[in-house]
Nucleic acid binder design. Sequence first.
DNA 1: AATTATGTTGCGGT
DNA 2: AACCGCAACATAAT
Length: 282
Amino acid sequence: MPELPEVETIRRALEQVLPRKQITGIRVYYPRSFSGDPAAIIGKQITSIGRKGKILNIRLNSESYLNVHLKMSGQLLYASSRESAEFPVVVPLEPSSTGLSRMPSRVTRVEIEFADGALLFFNDQRKFGWIRHATVAEGTDAPDVTGPAFTQEYFAEICAGTSRDIKTVLLDQSKIAGVGNVYANDALFTAGIRPDRSADSLTGNEIRRLHRAVIETIQEGIARKGTSATSIYVTPDGSKGSYQLIFRVYSREGQPCHICGSPILRKKKGGRSNFWCPICQH
DNA sequence: AATTATGTTGCGGT
DNA sequence: AACCGCAACATAAT
């Protein structure tokens, strides 16, 4: 699920509620979802919530971190008490008469309890995601796409001298931190560039347009609290993002281009789908 | 009912 | 180095 806007939305929400809370319990329902000794975090206090690209770094006192990667289907849900641990249906097949599902659910992999009775649930239907207790804040050192190090010059540099598809470069977390398939496709549309152009074929003007488009697209994603297309991704209070309402091309195969009306095309490449307008993108 | 797709990324082989 | 296919897994959609 999550790209930078989704993870950043979660980070901001958790930042409002978790700092200063003391961990008093942890239940690991699915062992492969948690690395480290669960007992080692008992008694620790949360000091801050950071993010590197798509990875969350929950800092604990005594200099350690709970690093979280949500991969395709991870969710972090926060409840201030056991009684209030009910959320809008967060997995499609968990219907209930009330429209709410109580945590922990069938897909809850880890649950953390705090001294004041608050709870944090890590749900992950597909089990790709993880929480790791480590002494370092894990994540890429590449410039965050929202940060000051992601300059136009830097972007030009990483595009030069590689014949990889430009969308592949956008998705390369070792070069740029945070961009995933949704926002990469939409940014390329905004910049008027086809996803399969080789990176070193972009002109200076195209580099400039794409650099700006990537930043704007990601910021719009954050402003809309992310993309909840299949209803897997939700914020920590169980509500949805709204970027899916303004998709430019992502997930719009066969639908008319917002600019020229031509049907949006889709082609699978390297295991992921490219979406683009054959008229507006060159 | 079998196949195909999904917002991620790590691995091994060429 | 870079690309490709496949892997992890569960489910919805076709």
